[in-house]
Amino acid sequence: MKISPEEVAKVARLARLDLTPEKIDQYAGQLDGILGYMDKLSELDTSSVEPMYTPVDQISVMRDDVVRKDFTREEILRNAPETDGAFFIVPRIV
């Protein structure tokens, strides 16, 4: 068993997802199969290979230190589930 229901539950907490016990078991089973499939990669010798994290070759992409204001506060808050027009409001953080 590559991934236990306990591990699925722990990972779900890290990802802020709430899974029912049935879902946890279901995911554990499915993920187990998927992770088992991924073990194929250990067949390859990658000891001298640099990881490739992006396909593009460019480096040092930067922009100048110039200020722009292209959006009003109203636009930024427009989609907020709860706001007083100045802040994003959430349930009290502890």
């Binding site: 110039v66 292209d70 959006f71 506060r73 100045a86 802040f87």
Partner: peptide
């Protein structure tokens, strides 16, 4: 003490009204 933020062009000026120096990138 840069003028703009590290990954977007919003001002870093201290003391602005809440959420005035904000754009889609930094939000």
């Amino acid at each position: 003490k840069t003028r703009s933020k590290i990954f977007c062009s919003c001002s870093t000026q201290f003391g602005a009204d809440p959420n005035e120096n904000v754009c889609p990138v930094c939000s």
